[in-house]
Nucleic acid binder design. Structure first.
Length: 151
DNA sequence: GCCAACGTTGGC
DNA sequence: GCCAACGTTGGC
């Protein structure tokens, strides 16, 4: 899951109550569908810093709630307000995410240099989706790498 | 349903 | 700031 550290970094997430933050603001249907239809409490998450000086994996987290309507879609003052969303027909759903720990930063260049991650969705040319599935083999490789090259 | 125009993302 | 890539919008 991508987050702009200027908005919410892994440190911000760790400092939040219960180390948990609602993943507000997703306004892309594919990304929404992952949260609404595919993610379940307890699922593991790679916390990725994007649109910043050093993009890359910055921490580990987990899904901490079932999906529910993103409250910001109804807030007129919010950047994420959606005039077409209705209380009885929400358009946007989110999950809560609990930060587990900060890791050393595995930057995008390092990720790209890892053969076993060659097919990782986040590394695909032109990828813009803020939420993408991670294969078990990719998760295992990354967490093993974090143990072997300690932070 | 097509598709051009436009807006956004995000690495560099 | 640039620009490729992609999603969305809206006229037809």
């Amino acid at each position: 899951m991508k987050s702009e550290p200027g908005e919410c970094s892994i440190d911000d997430a760790l400092a939040a109550p219960e180390r948990t933050i609602p993943w507000t603001g997703v306004r892309n249907y594919q990304a929404r569908n992952f949260m609404r239809d595919a993610m379940r409490p307890g699922d593991s998450v790679l916390f990725y810093h994007s649109s910043c000086a050093q993009p890359g994996i910055a921490g580990l987290a987990e899904v901490a709630s079932a999906p529910y309507p993103d409250p910001t879609q109804f807030e007129r003052a919010s950047d994420y307000y959606d005039a077409k969303a209705r209380r009885d027909a929400p358009r946007w759903y989110l999950v809560d995410v609990r930060a587990c720990r900060k890791t050393r930063l595995i930057d995008i260049a390092e990720l790209r240099a890892c053969r076993p991650l060659a097919r990782m969705q986040i590394l695909r040319r032109g990828n813009r989706l803020s939420i993408t599935p991670v294969a078990k083999s990719e998760w295992d490789y990354i967490t093993r790498r974090l143990m072997e090259h300690a932070d």
